[in-house]
Design a protein around this nucleic acid. Structure first.
Lengths: 193, 193
DNA sequence: GTCTATAGCGGGATAGAC
DNA sequence: GTCTATCCCGCTATAGAC
């Protein structure tokens, strides 16, 4: 309560939007959905967000800022721990009854239906994570926990593809065991001399 | 023209639906979209498909039958070639201007918005491919092209996750180089003693 | 800041003529 | 088999009262 209230309507709406985005996709929820959850009328939401696109952009911006804050927090940790923490974040999404997928992945099918501005923001978030992953893999190579033979760029892309795909497949199946096994196997393959 | 015409309206509609599914997602196209492409009215499509759900089910059934036919065709080939052919199929989706993603992946964000029957069909298709992959990895182990140390189940899941994620990321970025590099790196990791 | 009311569109779906 | 016409619904968005 020192800085910003977490319970003001705009913040609540934003958080609800993030949840719905990751469970139903951007086209799977509406102002009505959020308004119902908040107990207000959908027209009232336009006071905070002029359009759904604007809300979508705010949501993506929130993810971007969130990652930046998180990245600072883990900055001094060893690569191995950082990667584990990133994965834990992904796995938490799909755990028991949350039924969420990765924000970037949630746009996978809707991607061709959103505005150019939205596309740009989604890409921006994707590349932010990718850059962080590349740095972290480089760090791991220096620390001797990541194979030097693994190309950093391809490694980061493979890592992201695997996580994004595995979390979707886990939800499709309604289980999380596969996700954990895939991730463990991937890490074993990335680790080494 | 011996068996079934490929140009009858129902078949054309089905093929259009498959294309739109993989580019726009299931909720991203409508009867109107297909009707426009065919040059008929949307009401006429209800003559072939009672509902959109029924059309969706027919689309998934078509993928399932298509895979079964394909699997028979490649049945006697070595594992290594089979895997390459499967991957080639995936990569062809995203190549130049097709802009498609994998059918299963196209439901990733829409999954929680479709009917139980649809969910079941999507799962059925997913497990069909997965079973085929597991068999093919086993075959590869016998033929000495796939590492024996790789758990078959986890390997198949990892393979699928990677492909599904990588093709989505390639489309997001508007390039295909990453997809090729990821796939090559994955195959290198799967191959071995 | 939240409301009611309404406009305009596009979706799925049906009835019935041709 | 394809058409017109129509229905009902949910969506985004706006205007203006409170």
């Amino acid at each position: 309560m020192a800085t910003k209230s977490n319970s003001d309507t705009k913040t609540q709406a934003l958080n609800l939007a993030k949840g719905y985005l990751q469970t139903l996709g951007f086209n799977g929820f509406s102002f009505q959905t959020i308004a119902d959850a908040l107990g207000i009328k959908k027209a009232s939401l336009h006071y905070y967000f002029a359009s759904k696109e604007e809300m979508g952009l705010a949501v993506m911006e929130d993810y971007i800022e969130g990652h930046k804050v998180w990245a600072k927090k883990v900055h001094d940790l060893p690569s191995k721990i950082k990667l584990e923490k990133l994965i834990k974040g992904f796995c938490a999404l799909s755990s028991k009854k949350r039924d969420m997928i990765c924000p970037v992945g949630s746009f996978s099918s809707d991607f061709n239906t959103v505005t150019p501005k939205m596309k740009k923001k989604i890409k921006q978030f994707h590349f932010l994570i990718r850059d962080w992953l590349m740095e972290t893999l480089e760090q791991g190579k220096k620390e001797g926990t990541i194979k030097r033979s693994l190309d950093t760029e391809t490694g980061a892309d493979w890592f992201l593809s695997t996580l994004q795909g595995a979390i979707q497949i886990a939800r499709l199946r309604g289980e999380q065991d596969s996700l954990k096994k895939i991730v463990d196997t991937m890490l074993e393959n990335f680790h080494g001399k």
